[in-house]
Amino acid sequence: MQSTLFCLRAEHLLLYPMLDSNTTDFANPSTFILLGIPGLESAHVWISIPFCTMYVIAILGNFTILFIVKVEQRLHEPMYYFLCMLAISDLVLSTSTLPKTLSIFWSNSREINFNACLTQLFFIHCFLAIESGIVVAMAFDRYVAICDPLRHSTILTKEVVAKIGLAMMLRGSVLALPYPFLARQWPYCRTNIIPHSFCEHIAVVKLACADISISSYYGLFVAFLVIGLDVLFITMSYTQILRAIFRLPTKDARLKTFGTCTSHLCVVLAFYVPALFSFLSHRFGKNVPLQFHILVANLYLLVPPMLNPIIYGMKTKQIQDRLLQYFIYMN
């Protein structure tokens, strides 16, 4: 989805000597070499500590959300179905990158099979698009709940929610599918060393000894299509939501109604602000060190999956009550 977010400048590749075995002509290399965070190799173990901590929190938090929504009948509503979809997306997104990154940091296991690299590339961009779509669906749920509350249960039925989830999955898959196919078609005759901690689209195709304009333009097209349209739809939803809220007669009613949106707004900020920050740092931060770009890219795939269950856990009374019951029962 956002291949332009983590693009690496070609001159960075010149920092690393090409091994003789990596400079022979080959259409598809059998393996790529991931460097992790170049220049910070001595700090890899220390960097792995916060990365691993965030990953563990993301795994535990999202599995907890899935479990509570499953067992708590009161949470069998559209908003929580979408929350479960978001949790699944977060689990896949973080797991598609961090285990390999940690293996680089802990055991210097830098090799990744060519096909495994393309598979990782696909899952990253696919589930970024899926997650963005789910965030839009959650905005639509808030819009219907506030602007047309009497028809909420008839508009967002279980069948409609399932169809929305399927549509988001199909959209992500269709948009991400060209990435590995485009990457596979290029000849790689320069090096198979990727100065990154995971197989990001542009980081991979920039190793090709061919004109990769198609890959670059497609990545830019998908980024603007997904982020641009999704942010537009979210903005339109909240414009109508705010109009409905300001028409409420009392301040307490306005605050209470707006309070039902705060969790989703926090999720929107957690997802899109790092994306915007990463995009701007790449476009306008030409003198920003490569290490910073890679750290931001990793955090972008870790921070939202970690924060989303925390946000909804803190803001949703039903989830808090269920968690409290379990803690009391365990003690």
Rank of each mutant, 00 (worst) to 15 (best):
98 L>A: 04
77 E>Y: 05
245 I>Y: 09
278 S>A: 15
186 W>M: 08
65 I>L: 06
209 C>S: 09
217 Y>C: 13
194 I>N: 01
37 I>E: 02
179 Y>Q: 06
9 R>Y: 00
70 K>S: 12
22 N>S: 14
317 K>P: 08
330 M>E: 11
22 N>E: 10
162 A>P: 13
202 I>H: 14
122 F>V: 04
267 V>T: 06
238 Y>N: 01
128 L>F: 07
295 L>T: 12
181 F>K: 07
189 C>W: 05
6 F>C: 13
186 W>R: 06
296 V>S: 13
317 K>N: 07
238 Y>I: 04
174 V>E: 06
208 A>K: 05
121 L>S: 14
77 E>L: 12
229 L>A: 10
328 I>F: 11
76 H>P: 05
272 Y>P: 03
317 K>I: 02
67 F>W: 10
330 M>D: 08
300 Y>N: 14
238 Y>R: 03
82 F>K: 02
158 K>P: 14
178 P>I: 03
32 F>Y: 06
115 N>W: 05
119 T>P: 10
128 L>A: 12
167 A>T: 07
284 F>S: 09
329 Y>I: 06
227 I>K: 09
241 I>D: 00
45 V>Q: 15
191 T>I: 06
281 S>G: 15
189 C>D: 09
223 A>I: 02
87 A>P: 00
88 I>D: 04
297 A>W: 05
47 I>P: 00
145 A>D: 00
